[in-house]
């Protein structure tokens, strides 16, 4: 019985969402009374994992894992799970980890549970709380199966520092043959992504046209935030589809979500519901979004946003 965390990295840096998964793993390991092991893939600087309570770090270095594919990464993790007799694997809820988790659960015949929001209430039977119905509900779910794979909802547990031995051990994996290859990756560089952002600044039709988006971008820049938009805005081509957040767009689970000129259709709220704090700026006091918001300003975005940008800049 051991707890293993897959600590996802990008460009040799352990992702923040992975540190949250490790923090969660540590709490669970303590509850079970076991040690906490982590596995990293092609990451030469995993030392930070020690600060979050990791006892042992399995270090996999392999050229065939240069590009992420759910098949090859599942295969690699499966080898660690087998060698270490792991019964619980913790994943973050990044796009790659969720992708990998389901495929891996199929390969290992394990039981996978996603959007988990707390450490298990009970170990026998193993019962965890997860969000469902686009955050309009939660369930207390009983998991059975020899291998349990748990993907935790972003920003639901937070980062908790802890001391661990942090011993690094190279883990050699057997050959991986993949029947799927990555032929191209196009990625914006230097921009905060919606999935990784602590703060997301989003705008809707209330901004009147794409030419006014510099306001959103400037506000996002002073806050170190990602930019997003409502569905009509992406449908009209004002902004790229990749910025569309909502039920059929990207999900947002940030600490702070600022919505400018978005009325708050139920499909939009379904996608951003799990953000912790919501600020709504809208000139229509009847906009349904105010009912879902923590803080609201009834006012003209074209007056409020420039002032807000100036004040935030002066604050720093």
């Amino acid at each position: 019985m051991g707890v293993l965390v897959y600590a996802e990295s990008e460009n040799n840096i352990i992702k923040k969402s992975a540190l949250e998964a490790v923090s969660y793993g540590k709490a669970l390991a303590e509850k079970i009374g076991s040690r906490l092991n982590c596995v990293v893939i092609n990451c030469s600087e995993p030392n930070i994992l020690k600060q979050y309570g990791t006892d042992k770090i399995f270090n996999i270095t392999n050229d065939s894992l240069k590009d992420f594919t759910s098949r090859s990464y599942s295969n690699a993790l499966q080898q660690v799970i087998k060698a270490e007799n792991t019964s619980i694997l913790i994943l973050s809820s990044s796009a790659d980890s969720k992708y990998l988790g389901a495929h891996l659960a199929g390969f290992t015949d394990g039981s996978f549970i996603s959007n988990v929001v707390g450490i298990p209430d009970n170990l026998d039977p193993f019962t965890v709380k997860r969000s469902c119905f686009t955050n309009k509900g939660f369930s207390s779910t009983e998991l059975t199966g020899d291998i349990k794979i748990i993907s935790i909802s972003a920003n639901s547990f937070g980062l908790i520092e802890n001391n661990g031995d942090g011993k690094i051990e190279d883990f050699h994996i057997e050959d991986i043959s993949s029947t799927i290859t990555v032929s191209n990756i196009e990625k914006q560089s230097g921009k905060v992504t919606i999935a990784d952002a602590d703060v997301v600044v989003s705008a809707g039709r209330g901004l009147k046209g794409p030419e006014n988006w510099h306001l959103v971008e400037e506000l996002a820049e002073v806050l170190g935030a990602a930019t997003a938009c409502s569905k009509p805005v992406s449908d009209m081509g004002w902004r790229p589809h990749s910025e569309h957040v909502g039920q059929t767009g990207k999900p947002v689970s940030s600490n702070l979500y600022i919505a400018i000129g978005i009325s708050g259709a139920i499909q939009h709220l379904a996608g951003i519901n799990s953000s912790k704090i919501k600020v709504v700026i809208n000139n229509d006091p009847e906009a349904p979004f105010f009912k879902a918001a923590d803080y609201g300003i009834v006012g003209d975005a074209f007056e409020v946003i420039p002032q807000l940008i100036t004040k935030l800049k002066n604050r720093k």
Binding site: N135, E142, T144, G296, G299
Partner: peptide, 21 residues
Amino acid sequence: RAIDKKYFKPQEKAEVKLIKP
């Protein structure tokens, strides 16, 4: 393998705090 034993609704949200522009 995963059986939902009980459902909960989220806590009632506090009223929005309105701030003047």
